[in-house]
């Protein structure tokens, strides 16, 4: 009974989203989401519903964050596993766990008060795709580093010993033995981090600039889907509200698909070994 309750909360949420988004789907807004030029859903005279710039912003911000964080996190994990003395490695891991626990609002606040003025000096206005990407990258970095560490730790010792026996250097061992062997673990860590980045709201809303247009460069302000929901949820009504539910539904579908992909990959990997 309790189990059924726990398992069905997600159904309740999805049902609410679908029911909320239904007016938007039924009234034929779908083509308008794709082809409208502006986002002014509250306007009485000329409501327009261009969702594409926001979807694009979500994708771009997430991709930028992953591109920044994945190399750093993986390189850091390699260093942690193959170079760092054990006692320091323990501390490195503690620090990463600490960083992983920092609330997103703190990252966002730091981004707003420190990072945005820095970028502003480089290229105004500062609140930008770049700022959001960097803040998100910092947020998902510990996730990637920690999962990569545990993936590298599970590379069989015998393979590493065999590599050493063949006279392979550390560089060769890392690139030809350890990383290929840990690939799926590292990959699922990155995927997990991406799922988190797509759904992240607070850190992004504070630094992204919140302008619902396609960005021309990384210094342009953007507005991802999550930020739109957070900013407009408080006052939206009727069709505008339905659109926000639709946006939420899209988010759930994307993160759900990523999670499903992860679980599926894990099960297949489990059956092979």
């Amino acid at each position: 009974m309790l189990a059924l309750l726990s398992g069905s909360v997600v159904l309740l949420i999805v049902w609410f989203l679908v029911a909320g988004a239904l007016p938007a789907l039924r009234d034929g807004y779908l083509p308008r989401l794709l082809f409208d030029e502006h986002w002014q859903p509250g306007s009485a005279r000329d409501p327009q519903f261009a969702l594409m710039p926001m979807l694009a912003a979500s994708v771009l911000v997430t991709a930028l964050a992953a591109l920044l964080a994945a190399p750093l996190g993986i390189a850091g994990a390699v260093f942690h596993r193959f170079y760092l003395p054990k006692r320091l490695a323990v501390w490195n891991q503690r620090m990463l766990e600490l960083l992983a626990g920092v609330p997103s609002i703190v990252f966002g606040f730091w981004g707003l008060t420190v990072l945005v003025p820095l970028i502003n000096r480089l290229h105004p206005p500062g609140q930008s795709l770049l700022a959001a990407g960097i803040v998100l990258a910092l947020m998902i970095l510990p996730t990637i580093a920690l999962t990569s560490q545990s993936a590298l730790r599970s590379v069989p010792e015998s393979q590493l010993l065999a590599a050493a026996g063949l006279g392979m250097g550390r560089f060769a061992t890392v690139f030809h033995i350890a990383l290929p062997s840990a690939r799926s673990g590292i990959g699922s860590g990155v995927l997990l981090a991406i799922a988190r980045a797509v759904g992240e709201t607070m850190a992004v809303v504070m630094v992204c600039g919140n302008i619902a247009k396609f960005p021309g460069s990384v210094f342009d302000p953007v507005r991802p889907v999550t930020a739109t929901i957070a900013l407009e949820m408080g006052y939206a009504s009727s069709s505008h509200k339905a659109l926000l539910y639709l946006a939420g539904l899209i988010l759930v579908l994307v993160t759900g698909a990523l999670t499903g992909w992860l679980a599926f990959g894990k099960r297949n990997a489990g059956e092979v070994s």
Binding site: S6, G7, V10, L12, F16, L17, V198, V252, G256, T259
Partner: peptide, 22 residues
């Protein structure tokens, strides 16, 4: 049930906010 729970874990927090408000 496991699938439902795991899916719930993947829901972004802003969507929980949207759901909670509704």
């Amino acid at each position: 049930i496991t699938g439902g729970v795991d899916l719930l874990a993947s829901v972004p927090s802003i969507v929980f906010g949207l759901f909670g408000m509704a």
